[in-house]
Amino acid sequence: MSKGKNTNLRLNLSDILVTIVIALVFGLVFRLLGPVYDLVKPFGLHLDALLYGIWFIAAPFAALLIRKPGVAFLAETAAALAEMLFAGSGGVINLYYGLLQGAFSEAVFAAWRYKKFSLGIASLSAFAALIASIILDAGYAYLPLLAGWNLILYLVFRVIGSVLFSGLFPYALVKGLEKTGVTQSLRPVTKEDYNVLK
């Protein structure tokens, strides 16, 4: 671990702890939402797919907030681990979904070299997590064996849901949090900040 001037993008303890705690807050929300989510399942019309997007929220949210490499992956993984430890329905499945979704989400931010944190990138990251979940679902839930119209319904709902809940919503949340002033100390310190000392 080198201690050069440019290492300020490395995660420090505070970044790690904040990311995990954010994941826990969402994990708690997931746990509270879980029953609601389970309730809309029985109709087979994939109304749950619309809500499914909320499961991807931790990664884009943490990335928008802390803006450092690794936080998106860490957040989604920690959220999944928390869900497993809180004994949410599905148990160990969550862990695998979390790992893959987190990795896909992270990849989007990495592709822009952690320089862009716009609404578009957030939505794209949510969309990437969605792709990850579909890959797993294809194998796990036999997606290709659903009737055509039903499969399309499912996919459309998921896309809408993920962009809405994990693209727009976290973006709005971060904007809201910025107003409270707590986000300031989370972001990397810039050169301009040092210029004030002159």
């Binding site: 389970d38 109709f43 087979g44 036999y142 039903n150």
Partner: peptide
């Protein structure tokens, strides 16, 4: 329930 889509529309 989570398998209902598969049962009803598979």
């Amino acid at each position: 329930f989570s398998a209902s889509a598969m049962i009803l529309f598979g």
